[in-house]
Design a protein around this nucleic acid. Structure first.
Length: 129
DNA sequence: CCGATGACTCTGC
DNA sequence: CGCAGAGCCATCG
């Protein structure tokens, strides 16, 4: 059989690129899965993509993701509900605009995760709403 | 190899 | 609410 790697650590440039592509793929899928009108934190997406504790990775991937993928990147916020882009930037305003366009309330650059976060559905199912 | 950076998060004061 | 500190880790110079 072919030579087998002992560890998962990438060895060649090809392996590294492959690993990077896989990461991006899984993250992109996780982001694409956020329902319209709901939001999720970078950390939550990281966990769902299989990379718990690596929230920063999501920001990096989203920043590189080509527009043609039409990703709902605007539904990804910081854990405290704040927009994760420098305030005043072009993208910042774009994110606010897109969120409001689908019914998500943005107040002072922040969204109430308790109301628009994914957990809201679960909470409502259990506790009623 | 090192240090700085950043679309992050959590804890503690 | 704010700030500091400590993890986190791919990238870059």
């Amino acid at each position: 059989m072919m030579v087998r790697k002992i560890a998962d650590k990438p060895v060649t440039h090809e392996d590294a690129d492959e690993a990077r592509a896989l990461r991006a793929q899984r993250i992109i899928e996780a982001v694409a899965a956020i329902p319209k009108g709901r939001v999720a934190s970078y950390g939550a997406i990281a966990a769902r993509a299989g990379y718990p504790g690596r929230a920063r990775l999501i920001g990096r991937v989203l920043g590189d993701a080509p527009d043609r993928l039409s990703l709902p990147w605007h539904r990804v916020l910081r854990a405290d509900g704040h927009i994760g882009i420098p305030e005043g930037s072009k993208s910042y305003r774009e994110q606010c605009r897109r969120l409001r366009a689908e019914g998500v309330e943005v107040v002072n650059g922040r969204v109430a995760m308790s109301h628009f976060g994914l957990d809201h559905d679960l909470d409502r199912a259990i506790w009623g709403g």
